[in-house]
């Protein structure tokens, strides 16, 4: 099986590569080439940083169209991580109003800081799986994942597969057909993260 991590000049790609390699996936590539991306069995869309920087870089590399074509029309499985998931929304309010890829209808909004909770939401939070999915199959109930974000994905609950509590309830995993997104960093979430990535790899095989 061939896994490709989309490289568009942002994000800590190395840590995702390290995590995937730990699971014994020998064929993992980091690329922005159309040919390599279309030959992949599954994709990972990373993302660290400001939403607008990420969308700018996607556009600059011509990746918006390539990815939309592969994901929406060719139905290639994709896992978006952190901002990589947020990019799938229609728009984001981070530092203004910016357009996203619009794959799963939703808006990226700032976390509403209630009860003197610090923002960004940084650290290990328990997630609650609201809709069972192949990707979560190996996850133990009460598992913690590492979060580091100030904005969250607001969308219809029919797309939501997991939530967590931080003042309000945040959508932390979304899914629509072959598209999966997680707000936390599985590559930085110790064993729980590896279990989730293994779930994604199994799902790719099943797709």
């Amino acid at each position: 099986m061939k896994l490709v991590i989309v490289d568009y000049g942002v994000g800590n790609i190395l840590s995702i590569e390290n995590a995937v390699k730990r699971l014994g996936v020998s064929s993992v590539e980091v690329s922005r080439e159309k040919k390599v991306l279309s030959e992949a069995n599954g994709l990972i869309l990373p993302g660290v940083g400001a939403f607008s920087t990420c969308t700018d870089k996607l556009k600059k590399n011509g990746l918006s169209e390539i990815l939309t074509n592969l994901v929406i029309f060719k139905k290639k499985p994709i896992l978006g991580i952190c901002v990589g998931m947020q990019l799938m929304a229609n728009s984001s309010k981070e530092g203004g109003e910016f357009k996203g890829l619009g794959w799963i209808p939703g808006k990226v909004l700032r976390i509403n800081a209630k009860k003197n909770l610090p923002v960004p939401h940084v650290g290990w939070n328990e997630i609650r799986v609201t809709k069972p999915h192949e990707v979560f199959k190996k996850i133990v109930i009460g598992s913690h994942f590492y979060f580091d974000h100030s904005y969250h994905y607001s969308c219809n609950t029919k797309f939501v597969t997991a939530t967590c509590k931080y003042g309000e309830t945040l959508n932390v995993a979304i899914n629509y057909k072959n598209i999966f997104g997680v707000q936390f960093h599985p590559e930085k979430s110790d064993l729980a993260g590896l279990r989730l990535i293994r779930g994604y790899l199994n799902w790719i095989k099943a797709c």
Partner: peptide, 8 residues
């Protein structure tokens, strides 16, 4: 903050 986001 502008380039990578406040969180990092």
């Amino acid at each position: 903050k502008k380039k990578f986001g406040r969180q990092c």
